[in-house]
């Protein structure tokens, strides 16, 4: 089973933007033997805070313990769980694929199918950027593997909850259109 498909929880954690916060969060995970699948840290629109998107291996620890222990960290302001079915998840991958003249066409074709982008071209390799759901990235890397992967990097996923569809305003818009 690939990482993206294994049972996991996604937590988006708002933390104070202070030195050492990442270390506190990472330290907590290692001390309590919780496994991190991926971790992405980014600034938010408010410079006092950062947002961490933490994907936790669901089998290593009960989610409730992870959330409760995280909440005890003083720089942690807010924790939102995004159940995989109810969230929009995206991840970015950069991959250098061997692409000599005879295979370049096939690699380019795959890139097109995946709506990926060639961001750098060398003599016998290309760097391709793929954005999408983690499963899509898994699929792409599986497919280009036979050509030879030189290097591969993924950002780790970020996620936000799906928006409610039942907004009264949207419903009225729909009705108007119909």
């Amino acid at each position: 089973m690939t990482l993206a498909a294994s049972p996991h929880h996604i937590l988006t954690v708002t933390v104070e933007n202070k030195p050492g916060v990442l270390s506190r969060v990472a330290g907590l995970f290692s001390r309590r033997a919780f496994n991190i699948v991926s971790l992405a840290v980014s600034p938010t629109d408010d410079e006092r805070f950062s947002r961490m998107t933490i994907v936790v291996d669901a089998e290593s620890a009960p989610l409730e313990q992870v959330v409760k222990q995280l909440n005890k960290l003083i720089p942690v302001i807010k924790i939102t769980e995004v159940p995989p079915a109810e969230g929009v998840e995206r991840e970015l991958m950069l991959v250098i694929v061997k692409a000599a003249a005879e295979t370049r066409g096939q690699v380019t074709e795959l890139t097109a199918i995946f709506e990926a982008k060639i961001v750098d071209v060398g003599y016998d390799a290309m760097t391709i950027m793929v954005v999408g759901e983690p499963e899509k990235l898994d699929a792409f890397s599986d497919l280009v593997k036979p050509f030879g992967i030189v290097e591969l990097q993924r950002t780790g996923r970020i996620a936000l909850p799906k928006l409610a569809r039942e907004s009264t305003r949207l419903r009225s818009v729909k009705t108007a259109r119909a």
Partner: peptide
């Protein structure tokens, strides 16, 4: 008083 103790 520590919620993390409950159910640990």
């Amino acid at each position: 008083i520590d919620p993390a103790e409950l159910g640990k």
